[in-house]
Amino acid sequence: MVVWLIKEVFYQRKRHYLTIIASCIAIVLVLLVNIISSFIIKNVNLSFEQLGLNISCIQLLEKRNDNWIDSVIEIYDIRKYSSYKKIQGRDYKVIGCNSNLSKVFTFNFERGHFLTPTGNRYNDNQIVIGSKLKHYFNCYQLNDFINFNGITFQVVGILEKDNYNLYEDFDDCIFIFEGYVKDYTQSGLYFVSNKVFDESYISELLGEDNYFFIDQRQTKDSLIALLNLIRNVLLALSFVSVVVSIICIVNNSLSNIYSRMKEIGIKKALGASNEDIYRQFILESILIFLISIVISCLIVLAIIKLINLTTKN
């Protein structure tokens, strides 16, 4: 039965080419759009990091010697704010998380500063403190233990005052590490500060016309909107192609049936019932669909491999 069916389908292959091509186009487009859009959604944060954007941050650009320095970054992360507030109590608030800190700061443990190399794991009970806080906690050397909000922490870094202005902002900050932050950031570092992000404070510190903010959340929003637009356009295109393909497939199947009336007649004359004829056409359609799926999957796999290769290169 199967051999006969394959033989019948193979004999009618010229008629089936169009159906297979139409099905393949529809399946490939739907698969590609779905794979690409799910890839975009899944990797959108990572992609932004790769682009050098700290999308969960407000970036502060400071004017120094008539140049705008964008290496000074105030971190203000709404996303992590509430969770840390709950853990750390009322005196200190989490004001942010830098998703790519190691690239921004180059701290050095040997010089009494701290280093957060990418991929380095810290324990939850380890902290780095700002320089003002070492007097507050009576902690003047690394690996001392301090009590903070009823929890004992090991000090693995003290942020000493340096020539750079940026450290002043963190004099009264505590930096804590959290394992699960690894999932979101490369450094796994949180800032705990008694200061809430306040533009007037920055204005007072740097002078009114010497700074401006780039709210990268807005950049992120507009980029995500663009990505969504691209995805929707792709989906619309794939939908149109699916509709066109379905029309093509139905049209082809009908013309296939009409052009095979003689064959149907012969089979009916030999005793085939209507069910036998339906079964033959349905099985043929299933076989063609399966062939189309296999071809489409191979095409999609090849395209994805090609994309992977080009992006790697």
Binding site: M1, W4, K7, K267, L270, G271, A272, S273, D276
Partner: peptide
């Protein structure tokens, strides 16, 4: 052969 046996598919 297959043409002849075609009839036996339905009977």
């Amino acid at each position: 052969k297959e043409n002849i046996l075609l009839a036996t598919r339905y009977m």
